[in-house]
Design a protein around this nucleic acid. Structure first.
Length: 572
RNA sequence: GCGCCUGUAGCUCAGGGGAUAGAGCAACGGACUUCUAAUCCGUUGGCCGUAGGUUCGAUUCCUACCAGGCGCGCCA
């Protein structure tokens, strides 16, 4: 908590006049064990300046320090460290009042007020079904959206659909060869599978017969030229698939403000090319149009193929310029897999070369692949797991657990959905996004330990106590915060105090896992407390004090879960 | 070949110049007539990839190497 840290800085400043407050503050750290104190000031770096041993300096300063206004309870010297222990009652009061005052907004801020952030995430290639491969961008992007919104930014969620490009030429070619109109008369799900099978078959047969590839490219060329049949089929396929994708987004509780995908920019690319040419960046090379980037030690950025059809770099450039004009963004964030890092470096560089100042505000947020134990997923080979299957399995598993543990629960279906989906989301967000994740059914369907259900369960548990204690706690007045003096209570309060800075770190690093990890820590601390101490005790004052702690924890768990795009069930 | 990313417990992963390196899973042993046992407590488990360097101090930063992943002109 800032106030306490600032007090320590003030105190230290009196003995370290040659250091400014900022430097002192940045040196303050949190000891590894609460028994050592709440804050520590290491004196090692002062040794040179004072020409004294660190532990001697620490000892000297410690002796000269005395708290003046009750924020710090006592100060100890340990080796080269000065350890500060906060006044627990005061700390409890400060933190818990802050959580209550903030409520659903606790942890957020207004730093982003008046600033627009555009997020490009999920952006699936809709020539293929929704697989677990699409999961990461979707949940990471959605969480970053929630986090930035929480910090006051006005965010625009864009699903930059992959609804254009050679893959559609391939699907059309495959359909022309092997498909029949009646194949697409079933439900969208069925039709999507038909299209998927065509896509897989196309790549399988293309291995034997390379002329298929040319056929696919030719159909895309036709599509770009406005060929009527190509258009009709493209529209048919994209409509079917988009309907399916939207169903899954719905299930996961993910929404978008814009579905302007690649095809949206189709009629805007000529002017983009013109801009590039006018800037003198375009060169012809082997019949294709490129931007040479050798000066920046990068391969060239390809704008147009030999046959005149566009490439995705062109579409991305066009989209970026369009977004700059439309949204006047403070930041444009692309949540796209790590394998495209070079592409983003290239096209950000081209934007810079075009003189757009906002090119510095474009960020690529990469993440690792989802892979099987045996290797990479491949849509082309049909080696995929459909996201819907994962979600359905997780929901079913949750239903079974509810049937066994809480058969009287009302609204079972909704809770099963919230927890099942939550398990999948949390499973993805729990680790650093840059790491590859192995897809493992056993892990996906395990709800013990560091999982989404664990955090949600803790929330339900806290909710349950809050509900029962409601009558005792009619407000946060007249609470004796000094009664929260157990180690387990202090640990929870410390974590509650930490939430805002974790949110900020998660935003700065575009790293939802920071929130996920935090929620695990908080849940663990709370469950420890729960097992060690009773909340609904006879002593009114103690009961009230503990109830504020429980309710504050519940609130922060709810806030954190919401930042991950997860529900916070009150019962489960 | 060049570039980017990743190597921490049997497995999945946190941590990220400082005090004895932490969780979860798995295994084993405990705790429900008491606020939800999807929980909690305990035991077992580590040359923090290797070798150098910077530093008072390196698992953390730098360099090289090794291993794995991903990229490197007409896919996205």
């Amino acid at each position: 908590m800032e106030i306490f840290k600032n007090r320590i800085v003030q105190m230290l400043k009196e003995h370290l006049s040659e250091y400014d407050a900022g430097t002192i503050k940045s040196l303050i750290e949190v000891p590894p064990d609460p028994k050592m104190g709440d804050y520590a000031f290491p004196c090692f770096s002062l040794a040179k300046k004072f020409r004294k041993a660190p532990n001697f300096i620490a000892k000297e300063i410690t002796q000269g320090l005395k708290d003046t206004d009750g924020y710090i309870a006592h100060i100890e010297n340990a080796g080269g460290y000065i350890n500060f222990f906060v006044n627990q009652a005061r700390f409890n009061e400060t933190v818990l009042l802050k959580v209550f005052a903030g409520g659903q907004r606790y942890g957020g801020s207004s730093e982003g007020n008046g600033k627009n952030v555009v997020l490009d995430f999920s952006s699936p290639n809709i020539a293929k079904p929704f697989t677990v491969g699409h999961l990461r961008s979707t949940v990471i992007g959605n969480s970053i959206y929630k986090i930035y919104s929480f910090l006051g930014y006005s965010c625009v969620r864009i699903n930059h659909l992959g609804d254009w490009g050679t893959q559609f030429g391939k699907v059309i070619a495959a359909y022309k060869r092997w498909g029949r109109p009646e194949d697409l008369e079933g439900t969208p799900s069925e039709s999507l599978m038909v299209i998927f099978n065509l896509y897989v078959r196309f790549h399988k047969e293309a291995e034997e017969d390379p002329s298929l590839e040319a056929e696919g490219r030719a159909w895309f060329k036709k599509l770009e030229e406005g060929d009527e049949e190509a258009r009709r089929l493209w529209k048919l396929f994209t409509e079917i698939n988009l309907k399916e994708f939207k169903r899954i987004y719905d299930l996961m509780g993910v929404e978008f403000d814009s579905y302007a995908g690649e095809s949206f920019y189709e009629d805007k690319m000529d002017s983009m090319l013109k801009i590039l040419e006018d800037a003198g960046l375009v060169e012809e090379s082997e019949g294709a149009l490129i931007v040479d980037l050798s000066e920046y030690k990068m391969p060239p950025c390809l704008l147009q193929k030999q046959d005149g059809a566009t490439l995705y770099a062109t579409r991305d450039l066009t989209a970026a310029v369009y977004r700059a004009e439309t949204y006047n963004f403070h930041k444009l964030i692309y949540v796209v897999g790590m394998e495209q890092t070079l592409h983003f470096k290239q096209f950000f560089k081209v934007l810079e070369l075009l003189g757009y100042k906002w090119s510095k505000s474009c960020v690529h947020v990469p993440f690792g692949l989802i892979r099987f134990a045996e290797g990479k997923m491949s849509t082309r080979q049909g080696k995929v797991i459909f996201l819907e299957e994962v979600l359905t399995q997780a929901i079913e598993m949750t239903s079974e657990i509810i049937k066994e543990k809480n058969p009287d629960l009302v609204d079972k279906e909704k809770v099963a959905r919230d927890v099942g989906i939550g398990a999948v989301i949390f499973g993805d967000l729990r680790n650093n996004r840059i790491k590859d994740v192995k897809f493992d059914w056993e892990e996906v369907l395990n709800f013990d330990g560091e999982t989404g259900p664990y955090v949600q369960y803790t929330h339900a548990r806290a909710s349950s106590i809050s509900r029962r204690g409601q009558k005792s706690l009619d407000g946060i007045q007249d609470i004796d915060f000094s009664l929260l003096k157990e180690d387990e209570e202090a640990a929870v309060v410390r974590l509650l105090a930490d939430f805002p800075s974790r949110v900020k770190a998660a935003a700065e690093e575009y790293e939802p896992s920071i929130i996920a990890r935090y929620l695990i820590d908080l849940s663990r601390a709370f469950n420890k407390f729960y097992n060690a101490h009773r909340v609904l005790v006879d002593e009114e004052d103690l009961k009230k004090a503990r109830l504020t702690l429980v309710e504050a924890t519940r609130q922060v768990l709810a806030n954190g879960l919401s930042l991950l795009g997860m529900a916070a069930p009150f019962e489960m």
